[in-house]
Design a protein around this nucleic acid. Structure first.
Lengths: 210, 210, 210, 210
DNA sequence: GATGAATGAGTATTCATTCAT
DNA sequence: TATGAATGAATACTCATTCAT
């Protein structure tokens, strides 16, 4: 391992250390209530150092979305990689994956909606935006493929596969966000998992060729 | 019309004027980038005047959510008020209503998720919070009733009606938010309506007793 | 009584009503925390009305000082009006008067120091300033006269009578202010009256020709 | 000198720099008319920097009181530290000290009365409040001790020593405040020192056992 | 005279970001 | 690289005062 490579690796380690702290603090306080100093303190670094690794606060925040998308993509890829699964079984596997995605970062899933603010996007570096777009598009593509295969062998009804993938993701994130918001308003207990279960069941039933 | 009544009416007119401007500006810039001065300017009022009608920025913002919820509730009530509709037809009518809810305020639907911040809730007056909770709960109750009726006469499968109402709403808002976020990222045109259509179709298919 | 006179009287009544409310509210909250609206509400008037009787907030506040000074002057005059009192007895009577001045307005005595702010004085009408100066000067003159008489008949030591009057007043208000400030800091009980008693006793002893 | 120590010293230097500017500006304009920006400008710093050294405006202001109290305590301690002084001579030395306290900060002595506002106290950090209470109490204790000693050896009359210390301080600050207020109203020249002299003379005469 | 709705200037405080060391 | 002290722009909110009715 060359010295350059070691430095590269060290740098990446530090980036991850910051991201872990950022996730912790953002999850707890939300984007606006979190200060760069909070994150720096949590990471046992100085505020200035954060700026050596991330252009600004928005970019640091968006990088967390990237991590979720990376995880999502990995899980979608795994579904396809498993051998001998028919589309219906793949869909079941995908649903299982979504539970894990949720557990991977239950609170920060809200992040993905923060990206929609055009003000935010203006502050992101082109490379990061490209990465996000690509991962997002590939993950949804992988999901869409399941529906396409299902339609081909008549397991599922025929609809635009990309649209179905969008709906699948929207259903997932809609439930997560909605239940999260109710928890605060109604002080209800964690009713989320069960609702997700019913939601995905309905989705699959709606999709099936009767 | 007494002088007191006229004043009351004038006051309400001013409140609405502010809400209209607030909706415009918040829609364009989002909560944090919008300043009270922006809204005042848009409403052709002075900043101080806003505070005669709304306790603070959070409450002004939350009042916009109230308007959507009022509209939603009204539409749900209408669905039940129409005579001679069976549950399946009521669901169709509800879906139509949701398109209108979306058009009533395409961007500000995001508001409803802003409410989840406990920091926000801390700043709302108890009355406003009560109104929001009540409207929200009544609307979802009205939606749930459709599923309950449908289950009773075996049109729909039996699931917890409240959960189904949550899913119905989550599906709707999830699609709206997700498509909205993609629009910025992908610069795609309004693919939303079509996606919503498929989403609701799938939902209904999933719900039907085959 | 002519109609003009009745109006004049009515106007004065309203002025006093406002002053009473102002004293109440200023005493409770201090100058800065008190709003004109607070006073208006307390007086069951509208904010605008206050400005028909007082040029501005500073002048309303200063007018309260005037009331104390009027009371002080009246009491000093009484001391001189009583027949058959020698200087020593007059001083005793004056000390009694000071207890009453304190009870007349225990908290607002602080007002008199608010006047020192040049910013405040800039906002007072010349007439009010003149009245304050005159009353203040006459009252102190009356006090000084006691010391002068006392020096003449060798009851008291000879010092500049005006200076002695100033010291007499400074001792009184210093004790009041200092004890008032300690009450908050130390939460001690009303030790003030006793301290005032000792203070005046020492003052008199110091003054006496031994 | 270690690097840590140097930084500590530098930080203290900056604190003092701010206090000096604050004293200047507060003296000139009073608490309310002074803005944090005024102070920052005077100190050739940015407004934000002030908040690195003082929690808020109230605390910055109160810290000025602390400085006076520190000086007062030091002078009182010196009086006791001088050898071979009897109580009468100690009182004379104390009177000399008060002239210096006045010169140390002629205008800001008013500060000490600002502390009485409970609203102000609410905004102070517990440590600062503790320091103020302690210094205040120790200084007055030191003053009281002189009267106690004087009473013991029959130089002074017997009165509660703490009360005498309170009166001593009230006399001093009352004269300072009263003369200060008159200066503005009457535009008189500095008649203060002379008045103080007479005041203290009377106080001592009143105290002496004849 | 009386009202009270509207004004809008005024300010403490925060915090993302920079840069000298 | 890393630091962290310093920056200074940005903003919600208040309230004395005005003036059309």
């Amino acid at each position: 391992m060359g010295i350059r490579e070691r430095k590269e690796r060290e740098k990446e380690r530090r980036r991850q250390q910051i991201l872990v702290s950022a996730k912790r603090v953002f999850s707890e306080k939300g984007f606006n209530k979190t200060t760069m100093e909070d994150i720096a303190t949590n990471a046992e670094l100085s505020p200035g150092t954060l700026y050596l690794y991330f252009k600004n606060k928005e970019e640091l925040y968006a990088s967390l979305s990237l991590r979720i998308l990376q995880y999502l993509k990995m899980r979608v890829d795994h579904v396809h990689a498993e051998e001998g699964l028919n589309p219906s079984q793949k869909l079941d596997a995908l649903v299982e994956a979504m539970y894990d995605v949720y557990e991977f970062d239950p609170l920060i899933i809200i992040n993905l909606f923060h990206l929609q603010s055009s003000e935010t996007l203006r502050n992101l570096s082109p490379q990061l935006m490209l990465d996000i777009k690509e991962l997002s598009s590939k993950s949804l593509g992988g999901i869409a493929q399941i529906f396409e295969e299902g339609a081909k062998n008549s397991t599922f009804i025929e609809r635009h596969p990309i649209a179905l993938a969008d709906i699948f993701w929207a259903l997932f994130s809609g439930v997560v966000l909605w239940e999260a918001s109710k928890k605060v308003i109604d002080e209800r207990k964690d009713y989320l998992k069960q609702t997700l279960k019913i939601a995905f069941e309905l989705f699959k039933r709606g999709l099936e060729n009767k």
